[in-house]
Design a protein around this nucleic acid. Structure first.
Lengths: 339, 339
DNA sequence: CTGTTAGCGCTTTCAA
DNA sequence: TTGAAAGCGCTAACAG
């Protein structure tokens, strides 16, 4: 079962390889007659172009890479990732692109994966799904003029094509909501400390406090990984304080589920004793009991726009180095509503 | 910023291209001295091998394809997919393989995507995440001796490498549980009708009924897509019957959430009026209110094993055409417990 | 509109 | 242990 190559088609159709190549890539300057003929032979022989060879010849893979953050096993758990990947996938497939998911290997760091993908020419461009402070990956991609889009924000450079929510504002609004409800001891549970998204959300939280003449209590800011267990553990610490909070802002739904569990275990009531508000508005927040107030960040849209942006960069070759903002929405639910 | 090629390294190191190639692929028959020298130059020049060129030369991509079922936008929503992808990803990255997710494009059917991927040599092997009756994709892959593994079961052929749960038995057990609780009017809400998994679960359900001398009521078996809305809609139909069921088995958590919503809206109580039991045990089932009894199918393990199996096939070239069974577990929760 | 001719960057005999 | 040379299957000037 030898592979049918372009050459075979050419021979059988009585034309040159380049003609067949032109038919394959739908080149305009080719007569309808030969085109039809070649297409027939292609079908007859069951020919499919070898995409690897094509890629090598024209330096284009029709594949975009999506980079999982380090510790990818965890992030896969997070519905945010799933949703944005879905958005990316929707746009990619519409443009006949495939998606390559590269995950970190042990003993290698993210930057090495990037290099392999980029210098190894496995992908035409990349989408990063999150950013850290002083992100080495971003620095590398920028310096090497690699086509990429960031879902998130970059603090250091102003010319990174990216799409994000206004997380600071969202957090400010969420905190203000709790303050309006009369809460004064509001804690903040963050995810990984060096991630930009946490920084922004934390800033919004602090600003809301100070704008409302509430003092920031250092004990009320703790953080760990974006995991349910982390939420559980961190909430445990908050509840051990002499002055326990009357509201908690959690920077991710998955974590807030853990928080809720701990609060219930310790026999506090949500929202009466402790209000809970969260980010990302995955279905977790909707179906929790009580349901959890959460910021809908529109992950699907983030993914879609990121992918569209990448295609613009790839196609126009103009540097689409803009920051796009996707609207968020506060979805208020039982966890902050006193009936 | 020209790309550093193998040739450049060779020149600078004063050796031939083939020598560099050997160093890259860690060939044994090469002296430590030259090896060290070449490695130095590689680092100095920041050389990374062009994986496309490699693939073309040795007919190997180090990439496995994961095929999204048709209608991929939906399936992405389902935690089952996410979990098994995570399993696949874990194993793949350990073996230095990348994952290519190919999604269906409009006006093409799945089989054409397969052909592009396979004949186009974009991947070394494939993992299918579900099977249908008379599945054309499976037929094609089998006939063309493509290395692939199925997550699920195949009814037509007995030599398909696959990994699955014993869904019939699981469903039998779940139905029996409801019967033991005294329920006699048990309905079954399925997902897509032609999927093998639904067939198996439905069979288990029917067998349990007949083994317990309960008659199968045709009105009690309805199905649609694996979506929350479908669960909602179908449950609505059940609740319109003159003789409404006192228990419902739903073939997926996401659907059961929809079912639950409808039941509550119609002012029935779970579990008192209607018991609910479901499949897949995603966190949805755990956090629903009331929490939902569900079959834990261990999606993570399904993904891991599928990927391992694929690597065995790819490496040993022996036909690993076995069916592997992953254990399931009934997780009983509030939706079937009368206190 | 079509054919000829070089490669794309790497691997792999084969020979040394 | 190393090098020379052919070739993986396709594209892209260039020429006609």
């Amino acid at each position: 079962m030898k592979n049918v190559t372009l050459k075979d088609v050419a021979k059988k159709a009585g034309v040159s390889p380049s003609t067949v190549s032109r038919v394959v890539s739908d080149d305009s300057r080719i007569s309808e007659r030969t085109k039809k003929k070649v297409l027939e032979v292609m079908k007859e022989l069951g020919y499919y172009p070898n995409s690897i060879a094509r890629s090598l010849a024209n330096n284009k893979t029709n594949t975009i890479g999506v980079i999982m953050p380090y510790g990818s096993e965890d992030i896969f758990m997070n519905p945010f990732f799933q949703e944005s990947l879905r958005g990316i996938s929707l746009v990619a497939s519409k443009n006949c692109y495939d998606i390559l998911i590269s995950t970190s290997r042990k003993n290698e760091d993210e930057i090495d994966i990037l290099k392999c993908l980029i210098k190894g020419k496995k992908v035409d461009g990349l989408i990063l799904t999150r950013s850290n402070e002083n992100d080495e990956s971003i620095k590398y991609l920028r310096e090497n003029k690699v086509p990429f889009v960031l879902i998130g924000s970059c603090l250091e450079y102003d010319d990174i094509p990216s799409v994000d929510n206004d997380n600071k504002k969202a957090s400010y609004e969420l905190t203000s909501l709790l303050i309006k409800k009369g809460r004064k001891n509001i804690a903040f549970i963050g995810g990984e400390l060096h991630s930009v998204v946490i920084k922004n959300r934390f800033e919004g939280y602090k600003k809301a406090l100070s704008d409302n003449n509430l003092e920031f209590n250092e004990n009320y800011f703790i953080s760990d990984k974006f995991l349910e267990e982390s939420g559980y553990k961190l909430t445990g610490e908050l509840l051990k304080l002499k002055n326990i909070p009357d509201a908690i802002i959690v920077s991710d739904d998955l974590m807030s589920l853990g928080a809720m569990k701990k609060i219930k275990e310790e026999k506090y009531r949500v929202p009466q004793d402790i209000m809970l508000a969260s980010f990302n508005n995955s279905f977790l927040a909707k179906y929790a009991n009580p349901s959890i107030t959460s910021i809908d960040i529109n992950s699907l849209e983030l993914g879609k726009i990121a992918c569209k942006k990448l295609f613009n960069i790839l196609k126009n070759k103009k540097n689409e180095n803009s920051k796009e903002i996707v609207e968020y929405k506060i979805i208020e639910r039982e966890s902050t509503k006193l009936i």
